[in-house]
Design a protein around this nucleic acid. Sequence first.
DNA 1: GTAAATGCAAACCGTTTGCTGTACA
DNA 2: TGTACAGCAAACGGTTTGCATTTAC
Lengths: 150, 150
Amino acid sequence: MGPKQKLSATLHNRGYRLTRQRQLILEILQNSRDHLDAEMVYAEAKKRDSRIGIATVYRTLAFLKKIGLAEENRLGEDHSHYEAADRAKPHYHFACLKCGRIVEFESPQVMRLARSLCDKEGLQVTEVSLGFRGYCKKCRPADAECGKTT
Amino acid sequence: MGPKQKLSATLHNRGYRLTRQRQLILEILQNSRDHLDAEMVYAEAKKRDSRIGIATVYRTLAFLKKIGLAEENRLGEDHSHYEAADRAKPHYHFACLKCGRIVEFESPQVMRLARSLCDKEGLQVTEVSLGFRGYCKKCRPADAECGKTT
DNA sequence: GTAAATGCAAACCGTTTGCTGTACA
DNA sequence: TGTACAGCAAACGGTTTGCATTTAC
């Protein structure tokens, strides 16, 4: 059973259908190492399916997130970016305010923190968002210090 | 010198003016233990100044943030909440997806993590956003487990 | 065949902006 | 009295939605 059939079966089990558009958008996310926003996905998708609409892109991104195949990040302040959720470990992002460069990093401490909130306060954590912003190596002033400067 | 005069002087030093509206909105933030969004601040402000406009609220909240007297949080996905920035220690938020309850917590680890990113990767971190979402003690199903469940 | 999904365009909603009038210092 | 700021209403931009049509299965 190929990956397409497997995906189709997974969706079908939950009452969904595998459409050309869903396949396409998932592929776009999986083939990109960047963190694409909806407009970027739309532009890319149009190259292969000129009739696709932006509403489908938004609906599909939300759908892929819902079934766990995509992750949504708010790298900037004002809109979302997406990536395929096929990586094993959770990771977080630093975004450069000047050049937009994204640096990913892992931090097991974050999930540990979530667990301790559950133990101590009885909070069931289902969503985690951690992001740093600032200036990357190339964009920071030469005399910049570490840590939060505001 | 009273707090009002002190504030006025602080602003004046930087070329700004202390207006009735800025005083009012700062007071609203300082007198509330909740995390108010722009609409809530607007509603509260209207009680004391029926002529105030929503644009002034947004401009003032951005202004207070800029000069370090207010902090902006994205507790939900879609809009900002604000709180007075008079607390000594940085803190983070958990938001209940069902009842909206906010639980604040500290975590020195987060700033430590930011510092280590600076040391290892040369990233100058100027903004930190960490938030958890999920279900609070009252709203979680009885059999819910800890940690990320998606 | 029929329910689910798409495409289009219009609506939405939090937020920002241009412009004119007001008030702080 | 001059300049920073407020108020109003219109614009903005990312995202969502209603509805007729298409498509997966």
